[in-house]
Design a protein around this nucleic acid. Structure first.
Lengths: 140, 140
DNA sequence: TCGTTTTCTTGATCGATTCCAGATAACCTC
DNA sequence: GAGGTTATCTGGAATCGATCAAGAAAACGA
């Protein structure tokens, strides 16, 4: 199913901006709204910031994109949805890398005490220093 | 060790505002900066917003507080530091509840692929609906 | 008590995001 | 294809949480 069909299946209209957003997010590496906007403008000319935000929300609500918000950085988007994967975030540069779930799905979805909550998602973020920031640090 | 001694041990000066912040965060339940400011003012009269932010940063840097930032809500602070515990966040009201690490420390600190990163922390957030929001939902 | 240095005050500023009202364009129907 | 409905986009203002800056105040070692 191509992007246009996915949009239609989700009950959303197909516009150049949305196709460009899906493409940009797929090509990019966990882009934030600003980077998405710039990538989209490279593809289809002028698009308002508002349209980018609206579309990101619509696409996220429709399940075509996933929004992640590492502490201390603006929201980022990715196209890898529906599988239970997690993220590795660099404390220095903020780069985000996908990482498969540690042990299948088991540990992530089973809090030891649910305190009466109905839990629907477990989010795991590993914090550290990425290889390229480590290199920069040591050469200094 | 009382709060004043902890502050001194961390090389920080002891002020009424800081003692009040530590007390407020300990009493409260994962308060955000705004709530901390209000709780502090109840205790010691006028304190500027800036002083609250400065102090929260200083206390966090000193390891007396821990800062958590659930997606979509302002930063929150807690006094439970140094143990490997995680959080349960309500999607409806944003309430945060502490939860002990799922299986000791094992699953949290061992990403399946580190991609060259030096990992120093694993953060786990469980998302769901808290009991009181569930009750509100069903009565409607 | 004094002087140094941190901390606090007031007030401006910032980045990310959202709200609003009107114009535009996708898509369904004929 | 043409027209109407309604989602989407535009431009501009506004919000929120948080930070910066410069001077005043207060903590603490001597």
């Amino acid at each position: 199913m191509d992007d246009a069909a996915s949009l239609r299946a989700a009950g959303l209209r197909v516009t150049a901006a949305r196709l460009a957003i899906l493409d940009a997010v797929r090509q990019g590496n966990h882009l934030d709204a600003d980077r998405v906007a710039r990538a989209v403008r490279e593809r289809v000319g002028h698009v308002s910031t508002q349209a980018v935000y609206d579309s990101l929300h619509a696409l996220t609500a429709a399940g075509l994109l996933r929004r992640i918000e590492p502490a201390g950085s603006p929201a980022r988007y990715e196209t890898r949805v529906g599988d239970n994967h997690h993220h590795l975030v660099c404390r220095a540069c903020g780069e985000v890398t996908d990482i498969d779930c540690v042990v299948g799905e088991a540990p992530c979805l089973a809090p030891s005490q649910a305190h009466g909550y109905t839990v629907d998602e477990a989010e795991v973020v590993f914090w550290g220093i990425c290889p390229s920031c480590k290199a920069k640090e040591s050469e200094h």
